[in-house]
Computed example of a mutant assay.
Amino acid sequence: MQYLVGAIIAVYISILILGKKKRVTADYILAAWSFFAGVHLTYIYYYASGKYIDIPELIGWNAPIPLAHGPFLYAYILQLTQQQKTRYGWLLFFVPFFLGYLYILLDLQPLSNAARISMLSGNQPPELKCEYLFPGLTTAIICSGVVYIAASLVLLRRHKKNINEQFSNTDRITLNWLRYLIAGIVIILSFFILGQAELTFLSVVGFIVFLGYFGIRQVGIISDETAEETTVKGRYEKSTLTGGVAQKIHAELIEVMQTEQLYKDPELTLGMLAKRLAVHPGLLSQVLNTEEQKSFYDYINEHRVNEFKKLVCLPENRNFTILSIAFDCGFNSKSSFNRNFKKITQISPSAYVKQHHLD
């Protein structure tokens, strides 16, 4: 019964996701994935409840379904983190799934209902053309799961690097939702490999509930400004980054940072700074990498740390707390300030204050 309830929840979640006001491609993929998982759970209920005896024509047609979960995971993360290179290229990931159904069609279609039921008991029907049909699919499912889990982890790592290239404060951008999503697939695949059918099916039900609760309300994977930042146009957008151009942008950057102290804005992003300099974000990122050997995140936070070191020494700031001064420098949280300060100076902020007799 729990499988049928899980299937109903999955379909309901799919409807809720499609009911969101601002939908993106990732939402449609998640909704399709949830609906697909509902179909999968319906099939599990079909077998567990013995319904297959009444409707034996459906036996075996669920076998390729697990081949779709890996592509759904990868396509969802790809779209959510905006790393896709083509609009519909992710659909190609489902080719093995459709080939699996073609494989099933050729072998199951000729079987009688009695042969299909007998097959569930582990018997090999003489009409079955390929004796390696289901072992072959099992191997394909395991390989697909491993490959797409690994590929999803690569996407996650790449996205984390991209975040540091675009944002100066990343505390509100969390990748935990995607990590949990990958972990859920790992758990399901592990039970499947170990041959624990019941645990596999129960973990699918749990995964659906998790998918619904967090999938609808997930935030912070990527800022709403990111899409705008990647389309900012400037005078260097189509030019080659030569040494002269890089040095010119770098000089303008230094001047702006010194005179306007833009790093004090806790919401500062690569796109905002690029817009101020009238250059493309991609070129500015290149300049920071070549001229400063730093990511945007490290560059801005180094300025904030240096500003803190200057302000904390001023007599008029002795009555202010360390954290309040840090906030004035552009940090938006205690953890971010402590982490970046120690990374740059090798000591904690409180140790720095004591070391310079500023407490």
Rank of each mutant, 00 (worst) to 15 (best):
1 M>I: 08
25 T>P: 03
30 L>W: 13
36 F>M: 09
41 L>S: 00
44 I>Y: 02
46 Y>G: 00
46 Y>A: 01
65 I>E: 10
67 L>T: 01
73 L>N: 02
75 A>S: 15
82 Q>G: 11
91 L>G: 01
94 F>V: 01
94 F>M: 05
102 L>C: 06
102 L>F: 12
105 L>G: 07
107 D>W: 03
109 Q>K: 13
110 P>T: 04
111 L>W: 01
117 I>F: 00
118 S>A: 14
120 L>S: 13
120 L>F: 06
122 G>P: 02
125 P>E: 13
138 T>M: 01
146 V>D: 03
146 V>P: 03
156 L>N: 04
156 L>R: 05
161 K>N: 11
178 L>S: 10
186 V>I: 13
190 S>A: 15
205 V>N: 02
214 F>V: 11
216 I>L: 15
218 Q>M: 14
223 S>F: 10
228 E>D: 09
228 E>P: 02
234 G>E: 02
236 Y>W: 03
247 Q>M: 07
256 V>P: 06
259 T>Q: 15
264 K>Q: 11
268 L>A: 11
273 L>Q: 04
275 K>W: 07
281 P>G: 04
283 L>R: 11
285 S>Y: 05
292 E>Y: 08
295 S>C: 03
301 N>Q: 14
304 R>S: 06
318 R>A: 15
323 L>Y: 04
327 F>W: 10
332 N>K: 14
358 L>I: 14
